[in-house]
Design a protein around this nucleic acid. Structure first.
Lengths: 128, 128
DNA sequence: ATGTTAATGAGAACGATTTGCGAAAAGTCA
DNA sequence: TGACTTTTCGCAAATCGTTCTCATTAACAT
């Protein structure tokens, strides 16, 4: 008997929101969007479900600027983030070179990296 | 007449704590240590002073793993952090190569980096 | 010393998140 | 299907780090 891991309407609604999100929504946004599909979804369930999915490795939790975490579906390739300081837009990027350098540095200090966080905060140079 | 910017006992105590800190203390730690020198220091003053010093560029606020910010005196060279997942110890490091790559990546995406955050979370491989 | 202004302590307020709990829904097995 | 067990739910209250309010106090120029 495999553990059921109840597939409830609420969880489906939340997953649907994550699957169709083109951005990196906050818990608040996820709640609002999930309510469209199923108005009975509550804040607590959003947090509980996100925590569960994070534990399961299905979603990634990003604590950017210190104003509410932002979530995204895992499953794609690993990437880091560049945050537009003017718009809040989040751009994903990846650099194998940087990853390698990080591992080298950690090794020199006697560490194995478990995970890391690299965020660039910048602006488009104003044309003028 | 330069702006006064009151040099109070409390502020001196907090600055003293930061100057003599070998680690990256949390607000809570700073309060406890400051109270040794001046028991009248309050939580509110610690936060207010830290915010002020941060604005002044005197201290750096690090929001690591989401359990209270950790502070350090600015003034040294720029560096990033490696956090020991077992002990919470914070090790500083710097890589000119990584910095350069970051700038390159941002430039390719059409951005100028204002600041960045690079944190490595790892463990010493257990000898055995 | 005195008045003006900035800084303080105590505690209430805050925002994001988590939790306790009884009710409701899902899953299980005849 | 119905009876029973387990999971999940919504709500509201609780947490946690941090910030704010406000009456009081301490700095510092006069």
């Amino acid at each position: 008997m495999p553990k059921a891991c109840g597939v409830t309407r609420q969880r489906l609604a939340i997953l649907h929101v994550l699957r169709s999100a083109a951005d990196h929504p906050r818990a608040e946004d996820i709640l609002a969007r999930a309510k469209v599909q199923d108005p009975s979804v509550s804040q607590a369930t959003v947090y509980r479900t996100l925590a569960m999915l994070e534990r399961a490795g299905t979603v990634l939790k990003n604590e950017f600027d210190g104003a509410g975490a932002r979530y995204e579906l895992a499953g794609g390739a690993h990437h880091d983030h560049l945050i537009d300081l003017d718009t809040g837009e989040v751009i994903e990027f990846h650099s194998q070179k940087i990853e390698r350098l990080q591992a080298e540095i950690a090794a020199e200090l006697g560490y194995d990296i478990e995970w890391h966080r690299l965020e660039l905060y910048g602006r488009r140079p104003k044309a003028g």
